[in-house]
Nucleic acid binder design. Sequence first.
DNA 1: TTCGCACGTTTGATATATCAGAAAAGCCCG
DNA 2: CGGGCTTTTCTGATATATCAAACGTGCGAA
Lengths: 242, 242
Amino acid sequence: MTETADNLSLAFEAYTTVRQRILRGELPMGQVISRRKLAAELGMSFLPVSEALLRLEFEGLLESRPRAGTRVRIPTLRDVQGHYTVREALEVQAARLFTSAATVEERNELQKLAARVDLMAYQPEADRLHYLTLHEKLHRRIADCARCESLSDAIEKTHALASTWMCVGRSGSGEEPKRTPHQSLLEVLCGADSERAGEAMRRHIVSSQTRALERLQPYFEMHKVNGATYARSAKRNLELAG
Amino acid sequence: MTETADNLSLAFEAYTTVRQRILRGELPMGQVISRRKLAAELGMSFLPVSEALLRLEFEGLLESRPRAGTRVRIPTLRDVQGHYTVREALEVQAARLFTSAATVEERNELQKLAARVDLMAYQPEADRLHYLTLHEKLHRRIADCARCESLSDAIEKTHALASTWMCVGRSGSGEEPKRTPHQSLLEVLCGADSERAGEAMRRHIVSSQTRALERLQPYFEMHKVNGATYARSAKRNLELAG
DNA sequence: TTCGCACGTTTGATATATCAGAAAAGCCCG
DNA sequence: CGGGCTTTTCTGATATATCAAACGTGCGAA
């Protein structure tokens, strides 16, 4: 992980690094990020680091207050609801376009991918990150097949934001109402009816939202506690770690 | 327009100023912006200016190349198509939510507003900016009534981007297939059927896209000519002004 | 103990300076 | 008059320094 090459710019390097750490769950929600320490670690001034963090803040992965600090965003209930509303809008559109734009090869590819995702949902939690990655890839490929780069980009940003939240532990209650949700979703998407495809995707996103809200509920309390102040010491951030 | 107060931060002041100039059409597409001159004009260092331009670039209003320059974005054909695809997704969602979330007062208010917008479409082109403002307000209010701040924000950013493009002259061919498009749109939205509302909005956006593509066609050529290099002198930028 | 307040530390915001790359202008040669 | 080259100017990228505000700590009073 030393500097292999001056990729494009220092700011971009810092952006990529921090983004990856957040998506991998190395930086949990609420984690405070010090621009100066990060700059020292990456061997650069804190100016490119600031630009990188600013960009991540635009994308919704970080939040900061003028002279208080910068931390990985802790979503509120309304944040999550809003996120899923936007995501529903975008992915329903992608599903509609998919029915008319996807090639035969792509339809076959994605049906296989959906089967893999559904299968992995029942595996032990060993490689949770792997599951999330594959699940995200499925949705991204659906968007790609819609042949609209802007839409793909918007969906990718949306997913990146959600990835932050998904790294929190899933409650092990372990009952799944639908056995193969993604497979049946793709089945409808590969049909010719864009209306039905959109509705199927809508239901898929809504059920995903329901699960996310359950899982994130403890963090909404955390926002009330830690929301106002940016704790620099590690004490407060351990309140929910146990 | 002198500095009335240190609103929030210098960067925010610069952001607001430049954004307003773009939306008002004072900075046409392809116009190169000098950070240092702008900083001098606003009485600040170019660091907050850079932050502001970065944000505007992120929102899609500007484009820049590392050491070449920054200019008001010149969209490609695919940019505009993609923009309208995303916009369709978001506004259809807003329309669906509107049917179940809007209050009676809001429905009445927006129907009146729609009537005003449709009426103004036939006025002489005297106050074109005013029409655009009012039209945008109508769509924003529809999103607001969906009771989802994230969705409203996303739609607002989308509209800001489109505003840049709308400042180019409308071809005076002057035939309107629908006489009162917004009024009939609101009529459906105020009904109880979210499906029909979504579809009505979808058609509305699609027809809007068609008109935008026609109007922007000459600028797609401009992108081929001016796309590679950032002309600092004013010569090249006048190619399409006549 | 608990609350409140002062003080040192850390933070983001901003200013200034420097650097390498891109564009423009001048220049030479045909 | 025109095409290639150098030089100059301008641009964004980055480094360093400074400042006011927010945080954390500890002391002291109730």
